[in-house]
């Protein structure tokens, strides 16, 4: 019974997270907030801006611009 309750709560929270993530993704960003952020603040691998964390890539982008 306890195991079922544990699985139920975990699944409920997981569902809430997935729903909130999908809803958040659907809502468009306000004007002027573009995704193309060249963030060099940290090396957090979970951050959505992490692909920009590569300093060489950012420098290359700047040169191209």
């Amino acid at each position: 019974m306890e195991i079922l309750a544990a699985i139920g709560i975990a699944l409920a929270l997981l569902t809430i997270f997935v729903v909130s993530y999908l809803l958040n993704k659907k809502i468009p960003k306000p004007e002027g907030c573009d995704e193309d952020i060249e963030c060099l603040e940290c090396k957090n691998s979970f951050c959505r801006f992490n692909k920009k964390n590569d300093e060489d890539a950012v420098n290359q982008n700047k040169e191209e611009k």
């Binding site: 929270l13 997270f17 909130s20 958040n24």
Partner: peptide, 10 residues
């Protein structure tokens, strides 16, 4: 962990 992640999304 799931609560923190969901709160941030909301």
């Amino acid at each position: 962990i799931l609560v923190v992640a969901s709160v941030v999304q909301f």
